[in-house]
Computed example of a mutant assay.
Amino acid sequence: MKRVTLTLPLISLAACAAGEVEVPIAVRIANATPAVSVTARGETTPVGTTNADAADDPAIWRNAADPAASLIVGTDKKAGVYVYGLDGRVRDFLDAGRVNNVDLKDGVTINGGTGILVVASDRNDIARAKLALFQLDPVTAKLKALGIVDGGSGEAYGVCMGSDTAGLYAFIVLKDGTINQVALDASGTTPTGRIVRTMKLDTQSEGCAVDDRTGTLYVAEEDVGLWRFDARASGSTTPTKIAAADGKNIVADAEGVAIAPIGEKDGYVIVSSQGDNAYTLYRISDDSYVGRFRIVDGAIGGTEETDGIEVMLGDFGPQYPGGLFIAQDGQNGAAAQNFKLVAWADIVKALGLPQ
Rank of each mutant, 00 (worst) to 15 (best):
Y82I: 01
Y82E: 03
Y82S: 09
Y82Q: 07
Y84R: 14
L86V: 08
L86G: 12
D87K: 15
D87N: 15
D87S: 10
D87G: 15
G88R: 10
G88M: 09
R89V: 11
V90Q: 02
V90H: 04
R91Y: 00
R91G: 07
D92C: 11
D92R: 05
F93T: 07
F93V: 08
F93L: 14
F93E: 14
L94S: 07
L94Y: 08
D95P: 09
D95T: 13
A96N: 02
A96S: 15
A96E: 06
G97N: 09
G97L: 11
G97I: 08
G97K: 11
R98Q: 08
R98K: 15
R98C: 03
R98N: 06
R98H: 04
R98M: 09
V99N: 04
V99W: 00
V99E: 04
V99R: 00
N100A: 09
N100Q: 09
N101P: 10
N101W: 00
V102T: 07
V102D: 05
V102G: 05
D103F: 02
D103H: 13
L104P: 03
L104C: 02
L104M: 06
L104G: 03
L104K: 00
K105W: 00
K105V: 03
D106E: 13
D106N: 04
G107M: 12
G107R: 07
G107W: 03
G107C: 07
G107N: 10
G107Q: 12
V108T: 05
V108Q: 06
V108S: 02
V108D: 00
T109H: 08
T109N: 13
T109G: 03
I110M: 11
N111C: 04
N111K: 05
G112K: 11
G112H: 10
G112V: 03
G113L: 14
G113P: 02
G113N: 07
G113T: 02
T114W: 06
G115Y: 00
G115P: 03
I116V: 15
I116Q: 11
I116C: 15
